[in-house]
Amino acid sequence: MASLFLSKFSFFLLLIIITLFFHSSHCDVLTRCHITSLFQFGDSIADAGNVIRIPGAVISAQAWGLPYGETFFHKPTGRFSDGRIIADYIATALSLPFLNPYMDKSGVSFSQGANFAVAGATAMNNSFLEERGIGHVPFNVPLPSQLEWFKSHLQSTYGSKYSTTLRNSLVVLGEFGGVDYWNALAGNKPEPEVRTYVPFIIDGIISAIKEVIQLGSTRILVPGVFPFGCLSSYLTRFADTNPNAYDQYGCLKFYNDFATYHNIELKKALENLRCEFPRVKIVYGDYYGGFRLVFRYASWLGFNPSTLVSACCGSGGRYNAGGCSSASTNVCPNPSQYVNWDGLHLTDEAYHRISNVVINNMLPKFGCYGLRNSSALSSY
């Protein structure tokens, strides 16, 4: 009888945990928050259309054409997904409009923030990468360059009063590092060497945070990287004949361990930074944890457990990774049942669920205790 009681108790405890992770508060008032604008930095995980506006930017994942954007926008927007990205869900949770890409010069509004993320962007400057023989796209806009865009944008949009805007803003810095590591590992750099890059990348992220703090930012979200070993492109590029190299979901343990190492070092650095700037709210965005929770509760969330590590859009093969384009593409009929979209990026629905974890964790830490009609965290 006692064991039966404990079993039922554990079941209900599990339901509560899932609810906290994936469901929303439905309060009508957003209290003590006062976030009136949002600024996003990053790579293709966060790009809302900058790369497709850079002359000569040619990349294998053709986000300027369908099937990118097919699910939510019903047209390509430059986002590397079938629909929305995490930045869109964060904006919705804060009752802000989707951010326009900084490179959009068509007269769109930047009154409530801007997106500076660019697909292919690295944390490190080109000189760092070239000294180590790491490839990068010729149009690379690394983190330091995005910061220059940011400062120029603040001056041109808000003038001398930009610090007031930043006090009422949220800055999302990243994720960064994913492109640096992928370019190095896919370029056959040995993992022990790539591991030596981690302190440099963490230092680059911390330096950028200090810079936005000095400009006046008081709330900063700093995401970690995804579990690389669960991405279809990693699974294709680094396939292993040893079945013990894979975990229960079919992810490569070695590359997940590498991502975990980066995230642990980032969290340590952020803790030190909080001591240095105690009045600034600096929150770690657990993209890795959100991703893994989606895998753990995949069936309950509506994902197909048999295709967790397969890309919805690709050119075939075991994981259908690579070559997501209008010319020769295998696109799944139900992207909402997939986590991987094109091999390195995720579906609208996967971003939706990961965003719930990140947003529910960050809002109380930023002093936000209610959500105003947030579609990002509802409809379950």
Rank of each mutant, 00 (worst) to 15 (best):
N125M: 09
T347Q: 01
F22T: 06
V194L: 05
V172C: 13
T77Q: 01
C332Y: 02
W64S: 14
L344A: 10
H345M: 07
D286T: 11
K105I: 13
V58S: 14
S145L: 12
S95P: 12
N244I: 02
V309T: 15
D342M: 02
L166D: 03
Q146G: 06
N242P: 08
G343W: 00
R296K: 15
N320T: 12
R32F: 13
T164S: 15
L38Y: 15
G317P: 04
V222Q: 06
V280D: 07
E211Q: 12
L252K: 00
I202N: 10
C324Q: 04
V51Q: 10
C33I: 05
K281P: 07
G65R: 08
I205M: 08
K281F: 08
I264N: 14
Y284V: 10
L363K: 05
S127A: 15
A123N: 12
G343E: 00
Y287M: 12
A186P: 04
F226K: 04
L293R: 07
P142V: 09
N125P: 06
S169R: 05
L4K: 13
C368K: 05
Y162F: 15
S156Y: 13
N361H: 14
G224T: 07
P335M: 00
S127Q: 15
Q214V: 06
E211L: 05
F295D: 02
A186H: 11
E191C: 02
L308H: 03
S37K: 06
D43A: 14
Y380W: 14
I59P: 01
Y288K: 08
L94G: 00
A298T: 10
F295E: 05
G113W: 04
T218A: 10
T241Y: 06
S328N: 12
N360G: 15
K75T: 13
L273N: 04
